[in-house]
């Protein structure tokens, strides 16, 4: 089963800001994709997802998003996740303006 698992990060939106957050290896939530924990194991990822679903007081809509290893930490595998990790392309708003992404 684990063999078919695509490496993923666990992401959600912050309840208060709406901003995108990622679960880190230490169990905290970071606003930077590069600080996310990259899961390689389906069971560990499912457990983390279930735990996140149990935190409605701070998170909205947690899910696993495919990612891969990069020089500065995990990088999004899909362009939608790349936009979530950076911000919109028409203005320098969101994470790219807040120093929360490294590209």
């Amino acid at each position: 089963m684990s063999r078919d698992f695509t490496p993923s990060v666990l992401t959600a939106n912050d309840l208060f800001e709406g901003d995108v957050v990622y679960l880190t290896a230490s169990g905290g939530w970071s606003r930077m994709h590069t600080e996310a924990q990259l899961f390689h194991d389906a069971d560990a990822a499912a457990q983390a997802l279930a735990a996140a679903q149990g935190q409605p007081e701070r998170l909205v809509g947690p899910y696993l998003a495919p990612a891969h290893r990069g020089p500065n930490g995990p990088e999004p595998a899909h362009f939608r996740e790349a936009f979530r990790a950076r911000g919109p392309s028409n203005y320098r708003h969101g994470k790219q303006a807040d120093g929360m992404c490294r590209n």
């Binding site: 709406g18 901003d19 995108v20 936009f83 979530r84 911000g87 919109p88 708003h93």
Partner: peptide, 14 residues
Amino acid sequence: LRLMNGLYLQLHAY
């Protein structure tokens, strides 16, 4: 309830 009041949660923010 929030949708009936026009409040969405989008990619980066509400």
